[in-house]
């Protein structure tokens, strides 16, 4: 076999990292609607919340499926360690997403059974978000792996630390959802979204702070990366704090789009900070990207198709968001 000309592993790491943040941002505000659902001021507000994401949610969710399949193709070790290690969590995630997805479809078509679909929507969203947060926590925590095979127990993924990251992501998605709603609604509903944004932001910041102290404290590798001399990655937490400050101020000024944009900025900076903490380890504490990668020819074979399809999907995604731009009005049915 000829020596690879390019290091596709890095390209693939970039693709998967891009897919993950696309998923987190886009399904994040969808799931946020579900998390906020039980607290909505009225049934009209719930209609607006659901309508604001109805046209785009399933496109958003497809990034998750691509992530799953892409991991198997490009980084099989990640796939075959994460899924057994997170076995119960993955089930909760999928069950949550299924209920959430079905509720989207049937709530609009139902009248007398609507409250059931409200619960399915809220419960599914909260469970799925928590499970995703716990996945992030487990990744930071690392996995008990020997010879490329997960050897830990069924509930290793459920620790005080992952509980915290799980709750953190639920509140984080709620914040994304609230600021999205500010952008997409008006009147009473928008005012409600303004009111809940600052408390949610405070909650997110407190949990981020605890995680930021906890992680380097228990993981010398992370401590070394951040505190061994001056590093450009320090810009990331500074930018994150700046974004948080912008959200706070923008809510006071009753700005429309800025809170959501700044929340996305907060998520992106935190995400990049997480990647910077662990790079190049994908199955911490022992396996790097290159340990986990599939064969060069397999990475190449799939990349060819991906380079063709991803631009089309991105154009289509942009087009859908463009078509559905602007405010969602109460009583204006999507159906």
């Amino acid at each position: 076999m000829s020596e690879p000309v390019f290091d596709l592993t890095l390209i693939w790491a970039g693709i998967i990292a891009f897919g993950v943040i696309m998923y987190v941002l886009m399904d994040g505000f969808d799931l946020g609607q579900g998390i906020l659902f039980p607290f909505a001021p009225s049934e009209d507000a719930r209609d607006v919340m659901m309508n604001s994401v109805a046209p785009v949610w399933d496109g958003n969710e497809t990034w998750l499926i691509l992530g799953g399949a892409g991991l198997l193709a490009a980084f099989p070790l990640v796939y075959s360690v994460f899924l057994p290690a997170l076995y119960i969590g993955v089930f909760l995630l999928l069950a949550g997403l299924i209920f959430r997805g079905v509720a989207f479809e049937f709530r609009f078509k139902a009248k007398s059974s609507r409250y059931l679909w409200n619960w399915a929507f809220a419960g599914g969203s909260i469970v799925a978000s928590f499970a995703q947060g716990a996945v992030v926590g487990s990744y930071i925590q690392g996995f008990n792996v020997e010879n490329g095979v997960y050897v830990g127990g069924a509930l290793d993924w459920l620790t005080p630390f992952t509980l915290l990251t799980g709750v953190g992501l639920v509140i984080g998605y709620a914040l994304l959802g609230a600021t999205w709603l500010i952008m997409k609604s008006e009147g009473d509903i928008q005012q409600w979204a303004y009111r809940i944004t600052r408390p949610l932001l405070l909650g997110v910041m407190v949990i981020f702070l605890i995680i930021s102290v906890w992680t380097p404290w228990v993981d010398p590798f992370v401590a070394d990366r951040w505190f061994n001399g001056v590093s450009p990655i320090w810009l990331l937490p500074i930018l994150a704090l700046f974004c948080a400050w912008r959200i706070w101020v923008a809510v006071g000024q009753q700005r429309d789009g800025l809170p959501f944009v700044a929340t996305m900025g907060l998520f992106i900076c935190t995400y990049l900070g997480l990647l910077a903490s662990k790079f190049p380890y994908v199955v911490p504490p022992n396996y790097t990207l290159w340990d986990a990668a599939s064969a060069h020819e397999s990475q190449l074979f799939l990349l060819l198709g991906l380079l063709f399809v991803i631009p089309i999907v991105l154009i289509y995604t942009a087009w859908t968001y463009w078509v559905f731009r602007g405010k969602v009005k109460a009583g204006e049915g999507y159906h």
């Binding site: 193709a73 099989p76 796939y79």
Partner: peptide
């Protein structure tokens, strides 16, 4: 798309170089 990893991880790891791209193409 998650079953292969959760319950059949040894199979997934052994066959990923072929099945990974093929399933991803689907």
């Amino acid at each position: 798309s998650f079953q292969f990893g959760t319950n059949w991880s040894n199979f997934s790891q052994a066959t990923a170089n072929f099945l990974g791209p093929v399933l991803s193409y689907e």
